[in-house]
Nucleic acid binder design. Sequence first.
RNA 1: GCCCCUAUAGCUCAGCCAGGACAGAGCAGUGGUUUCCUAAACCAUGUGUCGCAGGUUCAAAUCCUGCUAGGGGUACCA
Length: 556
Amino acid sequence: MPEQPLHKIESLVRAAILAAQDAGDLPSFDLPPLVVERPQREEHGDYATSAALQLAGTARMPPLAIAEAIAARIPQTDFLAHVEVAPPGFVNFTLDDQWLVRHVEEILAAGESYGNLRLGQGQKVQVEYGSANPTGPLHVGSGRNTVIGDSLANVLEAAGYAVQREYYVNDAGTQMRLFAETLYARYAQALGRDESIPDDGYRGAYMVEMGDDIAREEGDRFLQMPREEAVAALYEIGLGKMLASISDDLRLMGITYDRWFSERSVYDSGLFDQVLAILREEHYVVEREGAVWFASSELGDDKDNVLIRSDGEPGYLASDIAYHYDKFIGRGFDRVIDVWGADHQGHVPRMKAAMRAIGVDPDHLILIVYQLVTLRRGDEIVRLSKRTGDIVTLREVLEEIGADAVRFLLLGRAADSQMDLDLDLAKEQAAENPVYYVQYAHARIASILRYGQGIDFSEGDVSLLGHPAELALIRHMLRLPEVIEKAVTSLSPHYLPYYAQELAGAFHPFYKQCRVVSSLPEDMPLNKARLKLVAAAKIVLARVLALMGVSAPESM
RNA sequence: GCCCCUAUAGCUCAGCCAGGACAGAGCAGUGGUUUCCUAAACCAUGUGUCGCAGGUUCAAAUCCUGCUAGGGGUACCA
């Protein structure tokens, strides 16, 4: 895992400024954080810093003069071909061709681990995502949640964190009781009994089907027992069926968890009582109006929140505090990341307050709130509600559009950005989805390697590479570690699909311009070098696809 | 009312955190490309009051204030 050029350049620029100050070419001042970035335009090199522009004010010197002073003190290195000063005060860095070309060998040597970083240093991080109520099938919103969470977990792992993926099963509380009551009614109806579902029950067709299924599988035995007992039994059966269906849908998207954590277990294990006692001891629990309140307003929230309702039923917040106590105190995660839809944003200040109450640094609980997906079919807006039964299931969308395209589509927007998903358009454009552009690059390489499988290119000489299209491809391959770092530090997996397209966009022109396996005998040395290049490109493409949870086909 | 998110090309969106070099991509449009490795490809080409109005700055899509529009939340549902 050699140091990335980006960071090497940062160090060089910093050292250059300090040296210029020592020599009296620059006045002394404290260095602000230096920004080294990828310039937008190719002719500005591979990396650039605007440090001189930033410093012009404090140094009271023309930016160009500062840039000159910096550039003059960047030492000769193997990886930089040249360093240039450009008006109004940029310093531009261009990577050395031979250094780039040698990088191909490093990627081949790193293999699947190419791109790995040591940012995390083994810190324990939990990512909790998905976590949809098991009262109905997953819809597209849950899809966005899982795609963000899963890819984030992937990049965190790549960056050297010890990641645990978890699904919190809300198998307790009012909604599950309504679900069980509804299921009882549907089951009874399936057996011909006149029974109506609760007013706030789940009206979706899937509940009718489940009632039919259970009637067929179990007969009428639940009608023979006391109603309460029957509802309790159906609660378990229905929960099991919903969880099975949810995990099937997730598997279709390539998502699996390390642990499914039951909300009920928070109460059954005594964890909730234990945490409530701690809150009481710290005097964050008050009783009024017949309910038990969490005094979160004393901890930065703008209001108090109900822990146990006046009907004696603990609310969602109650178990969630206990659950997070278990994550941090019980299981010792250094950081916990929860992925929530914008409809849960009101929960953020309460949970931050709760962390303070149990003695956890609230910054260690990272809440990623993504904006909701608005589904449309043409001009018609499809509202999603499990209760009214008006849902477009994730399964339907997966079947219409395909898991890879769905993941790519859902991942490609920043969490802050609201998504407008037109199912008609998405279906229409499914074939034009950029995911196939990326996958096709991978498949093309696989095809080349099959075609050239008789050639032993292990002794290929990469120094023969140098065509502009080859160098452009290598430059893009080199960016993977930077992209992973950026996705991790900004907790924004949406950079991955953009990068993937750019990488594929460097491969396809290379393929067009550079014959990899040529039949001319005199081309053999170059063939071997290029086979090395494409083998390395395949590694990088496969890696970024894997990070997105998208398959990397050998043929298309 | 108050709080959070958003507004950038015909459409869908990056870029905003750390202000800097003529504002980017995909799709859609137009024209072209196939004697050896996959045309799901390549090449060329047009597209902008960066929602509006102020402010800060040598420099604003980016920071600040106000406004408009859309989405979400809002004190015993999750």
